[in-house]
Design a protein around this nucleic acid. Structure first.
Lengths: 250, 250
DNA sequence: CGCTGCGTTGAGCCGACTCAAAGGTTGTGG
DNA sequence: CCACAACCTTTGAGTCGGCTCAACGCAGCG
């Protein structure tokens, strides 16, 4: 039954690992419990001991830390299909927060169901682990980005990454996708100030690399954006997925 | 037999998870295969498909990426007791390199032995997963460090983290531990230039916060170092380990 | 003994920051 | 439906943290 789905979790995991119908059905089942959450809601608070996994189905969330003096670092964006830690309940407590950035549809999966999967479906378990490894790979690339790229490269890199991640879960329309981030959020993800984000985005627009239309981002020159960012797609670990074939090689 | 060990892997995992004698013996067994590796050796090369796990038993290694124009980012330091990815063989290929920074003693564990453990010892398997979660937590904190702290805070933060991580595996002597990093390596880990690392270290020395003696680092004012760095030890997920009791609360 | 790599220092520069203020946009409540 | 508040974007001006370039001393080592 679960063929040609638009369930982003299934699409994401399909890209990491060939799934059977059995797995797809199980994933549909897991993500049945949906909830609409307003922007700015903590899905997991710093210090909490979580007992369930959330999966972003629509919308946008992030992982973040706030320093005592108010400086904030966003450590990950969670796009549709992204689980926020399949293994959180292993930890004693959260060392960071997870919050929605826009109104989002979120699926909540109780720990017990994850554990049942771990015992009954080896393929799906493997897909879950792939997913956490991918999170870590993205995090490593973000460190490279913030540590060793200048603002122009850095912004370009993030935009292209987000485009590809949206593409994997079928959330693009041509070269356009929804990017409802404020400049403050971009700044906090990239270790820059909002003023500088503003000027850097303006530069990319004036060079006709990108265009924004409300909360939509249009990539006018994908090849150029990739080149500016020095993007090496290895870290996203695309499987043999054909979905990205055309787009990723631009 | 494995009581009062100096096996750093055992000490590290004990800190995450209470291990029984059975687990300690298994870990001793796993890390029997030792090899001395000179400085600057790739344990895993970018692009490689690894078939075994390495554990640093003595010395120092790092994860790193190099950009096409030569800029380098170090994404993790691996101190004694640190496995370099228990789950690497899940990935199609390495998206970064792992190399020794000094002459090191490394234990090599074949994939098959890890898999055997995964099937036979649930507690040890859990300890392995904890270890990978800790890696990720450290990586997140590094991103905060590079993204949102200035050079002075950043250097202080790294030094204090490395002190604590050495403490966990019994590699400290009072407030002194071995830190054989060049200033270039510190720079590449912190997203700074070597010149600025040099000046920042000099500042910490002139303020009598730290002292170096060859490749040894002495922390003269631990409380001050912690305060400068804005250190929040949550992310290191100390268990109920008593080993750190005194030191971590300075 | 001459490399080569590391640490140190100075000088000048620039990328990105802070501060400040003015428009836009969005949402909310009267 | 308007008015207001809150937040976001944009712009300018001035500053500074950290960079680059360049040189020199020093130690280890073939």
């Amino acid at each position: 039954m679960a063929t040609s789905t638009s369930n982003p979790l299934i699409m994401k995991l399909q890209n990491l690992c060939r799934l059977g119908e059995r797995e797809e059905d199980a994933l549909s089942e897991l993500t049945r419990n949906l909830r609409t959450v307003p922007a700015g809601t903590d899905l997991k608070a710093h210090g909490e001991r979580p007992k369930q996994v959330h999966v972003v189905m629509e919308g946008l969330a992030c992982r973040y830390k706030v320093l005592p003096d108010g400086r904030r670092q966003i450590m990950a964006f969670l796009v549709p299909g992204d689980p926020c830690d399949f293994q959180v309940f292993l930890l004693e407590q959260m060392d960071h927060g997870v919050a929605t950035l826009t109104s989002s549809i979120v699926s909540t999966i109780p720990q017990s169901q994850i554990e049942r999967i771990a015992e009954s479906d080896a393929l799906l378990t493997k897909a879950f682990w792939y997913s956490t490894l991918l999170d870590e790979a993205i995090l490593r690339e973000w460190l490279v980005n913030v540590g060793r790229r200048d603002a122009y490269e850095r912004v370009a890199h993030l935009l292209w990454e987000l485009f590809l991640r949206h593409a994997i879960v079928g959330r693009i329309n041509g070269m356009t996708f929804s990017l409802p981030l404020t400049q403050r959020e971009l700044a906090d993800a990239l270790g820059l100030s909002t003023v500088h984000i503003n000027r850097t985005m303006q530069r990319l627009k004036s060079e006709n690399v990108i265009e924004t239309d409300g909360r939509m981002l249009v990539i006018l020159q994908p090849a150029r954006l990739r080149q500016i960012s020095g993007f090496d797609p290895d870290y996203l670990h695309f499987g043999d997925s054909m979905r990205l074939g055309t787009v990723a090689n631009l």
